[in-house]
Design a protein around this nucleic acid. Sequence first.
DNA 1: GAATAAGTTTCTATATATTGAAACATTTGA
DNA 2: TCAAATGTTTCAATATATAGAAACTTATTC
Lengths: 110, 110
Amino acid sequence: METKRNKMKMMTLDQMKDQHIGEIGTEERNKYEFDLRLDILGEMIKSVRKERHLTQEQLGELIGVQKSQISKLEKSAKNVTIETILKVFRALEANIKFSVEMNDSEFKVA
Amino acid sequence: METKRNKMKMMTLDQMKDQHIGEIGTEERNKYEFDLRLDILGEMIKSVRKERHLTQEQLGELIGVQKSQISKLEKSAKNVTIETILKVFRALEANIKFSVEMNDSEFKVA
DNA sequence: GAATAAGTTTCTATATATTGAAACATTTGA
DNA sequence: TCAAATGTTTCAATATATAGAAACTTATTC
């Protein structure tokens, strides 16, 4: 029996944004920075679920909800509670991390 | 007028956990890993707010809510929507990042 | 092409997040 | 020590998240 060992995979929002829009600094990227942040969590859920080779229904069973809830989460996770997010990622055996970055705009062009 | 330029400060959940419980690997840390994750966002809000030298009332004004809402958020952000979290951190001029870490337990001790 | 699997949307019901206001508690500054 | 500033808690009201079920749509398989 082949032991399949997946290395730790760190996938960030930024990586997914790179795929979808462009790299940091591009105008396209800045334009959608905030709005996409609201949607990207759902895509992260979907991405990890597929990585785990699970259907929405299977993931739903892991959590104890119907597949329609998974579908809704994946389509838009912007108005979802932290607890729900954590519940999903825990079922997917993935850790989600929050990190805060303080940014001061020295250039206050008014 | 002195130009005050703060460098980028990256503060993660893990850093805050180190302060509160202990470093990664300690039994204490693992024991509370999940529960604390639900509470730590509130403390991050508070921490950043103080970093900005704002009262809860002032932060509330920035967002358009009363100070009591800020107090409640800081006390417990575990059942808060992503959108609310983002709204707060945006008012604090801080970026919050979500990163997902896939972890496979090769050692399935059953 | 047909059947099945998988995912999405809509509707309704229930649970819960968000909010203001006010009372209360703690902290701070002089 | 005291008053003001700041933060917390409670209550009630409103908005919204969560959920199931079913119909619908899309993707996949043979």
